[in-house]
Write a protein that binds this DNA or RNA. Structure first.
Lengths: 337, 337
DNA sequence: TTGTAGGCGTTATCAA
DNA sequence: TTGATAACGCCTACAA
């Protein structure tokens, strides 16, 4: 383990000078600096994180808690999201601390509190926002920097990047209505998940715009998994007057619906239209390929890290940045191609 | 920010005593301990990570570098793997540091070296092993604890948990041969990826056992993505004498092949058999559902963390644990049901 | 331009 | 059983 002392000793300089030379202060002679830098590199010196952190009172670490219900889950959305967070963090010299906890669980609370109290992280990335999200309230009160993917309230005051899924779903329903579908079902999520609020509103907006009356029996609650989409779709298809189109709150839900349709002997894209939301790679490889609203998961994650780091650095704390992106409707075979 | 000093002051005790009471030393009076513990909890005390780390010379952090090629990727295998790592770490009081880098890239090397040099992590979880993996060599030389998912060499000397994919593929090929398929193709991965060595060997073993001659033209190199599986399968199906079955090195490859088959007007499970490996949830929801070899991703990740923490703690350093699990063949419709 | 000294919050050693 | 004291490695006023 090589540390400042070693480099200093070798160069017959003081620890102070070495430290400042390395940190790019302008009160060291250029000649000294080059010597120091060269020696440090050659000796393989890297500052001890713990020491620097203790002294500077910041960790250069951001935290992210994966919303993993019941341990198991396999949503490639999050694989891509984490890849974006990781790349973003590396690019800015930050590290990414990851944990997992079921939403709203005691474990979740513990993780956030522990990370805050022991100052392991400088800020948080939040995703899968809930209505009245305690994390938002808590972090805001504690003064811990955070940015969210989506927002906890219609008129949220925290910094976020959001994809306008409301407009997206309205557009999607318009697309279906344009193809002549009138009985359009929607499989959503628990009403306390923020995205459900937005997406179901977009669905209703789309119906209204198309002059289709809202039918309560065509709206079911899923859980954003393939399984959830599957069983909800089965129930819909068992209705006396089943829907001719099913819209899922995300791609996984729609993929579950595809399976249900097939088991009922229906061919998606011909006998029934099915569409999702997210635009993960998986949606391009289903049979038939899935119509979906694509959101830039990777890029959003990267941007979130940038926003967060800016806030940690204390920039732009006057105004909370609210970024709204538009999803892109990708029409594939599952709605007729 | 409440620290030892505050608790000590409040209780009119020394910092030392408080520290030891909290850490469970047995040289503090029981009465004192209860007072301390209560006060600490009430005041919301948690040790500063950086300080503890600096003093104890260990971080209680494990590192994992996600093999993300070109930034983007969406493999739910890794979502599940990370969930397992996260849960395992939490259960043992460790934190999980995650970064992303393309395999063999300079960035990858940098991350490992930086984490080692600045002692941010106590050990590493390795996955997606490569033949002659530099990480294994480097970490072993530096004496940094690590455990691997899979192994870098046929006779690897490092600790690992492996799923016997060789036996698995042999079993899979036997299954296909038993159904009368003779022209069985294999879409694998780059030959420097360790799993390719194992899986392709299992494939050949299976052919041999079934008395099917090995046909070079039926083996293609994919890249473990849906896209890769898709284009490889297209090439296979364009052969003068196309295969009647396609085995993918993982589920994503097989899913790409499903798509290719469909575009060629073939119905999987009837006109052609297709099978994968991993047993992710996605494989259960394809059309038709995919025959696959299931490996316990989540549990393996958890176990890896346990193994690693044991090694960090210095236990069992005499012998490297080598755990071998058996995959489970799940027969679904894509091979005839 | 360089060096000295003190402290960030904990834990460990030793003495009381 | 408890307390004073000295590190852990780094950063930064301040002095030289």
């Amino acid at each position: 383990m090589v540390q400042l002392r070693d480099v200093a000793r070798r160069l017959k300089l003081s620890i102070t000078t070495v430290s400042r030379a390395l940190d790019g202060y302008d009160d060291v002679a250029e000649a000294t600096r080059t010597r120091v830098v060269r020696a440090a590199r050659q000796m393989g010196y890297t500052p001890r994180r713990a020491a620097r952190q203790l002294r500077r009172q910041r960790a250069d670490v951001i935290g992210y808690v994966l919303p993993a219900s019941e341990g198991h889950f396999a949503d490639s959305f999050f694989a891509e999201f984490i890849a974006g967070l990781g790349d973003g963090a590396v690019a800015l010299g930050f590290d990414l601390l990851v944990s997992t906890a079921a939403p709203k669980s005691a474990a979740e609370r513990q993780i956030y509190c522990r990370w805050i109290q022991s100052s392991v992280v400088d800020g948080f990335i939040l995703s899968r926002m809930r209505v009245g999200d305690w994390r938002v309230i808590h972090l805001a009160r504690e003064g811990i920097p955070f940015v969210a993917h989506g927002r906890a309230q219609p008129r949220a005051m925290h910094p976020y990047i959001e994809v306008d899924s409301r407009a997206g779903f309205a557009q999607l329903v318009a697309h279906l209505a344009g193809r002549g579908f009138r009985r359009i079902a929607y499989v959503g999520a628990s009403p306390d998940i923020a995205l459900q609020v937005e997406r179901s509103a977009g669905y209703r907006e789309g119906l209204e715009a198309a002059g289709i009356p809202f039918d309560d029996s065509l709206v079911l609650e899923g859980d954003l998994t393939r399984q959830g989409g599957y069983s909800a779709a089965l129930r819909l298809l068992a209705l006396p007057e089943p829907p001719t189109a099913i819209v899922g709150a995300n791609d996984l839900t729609a993929i579950g619906a595809l399976r249900a349709a097939r088991e009922k002997g229906l061919t998606a894209g011909r006998d029934i239209a099915i569409a999702g939301y997210d635009g993960t790679e998986e949606s391009a490889h289903t049979q038939p390929p899935l119509t979906t609203l694509q959101q830039p998961i990777y890029e959003t994650a990267r941007s979130l890290v940038h926003m967060l780091v800016a806030r940690i650095g204390g920039e732009g704390s006057l105004e909370d940045p609210h970024v709204v992106l538009q999803p892109r409707l990708i029409i594939r075979e599952s709605t007729g191609g």
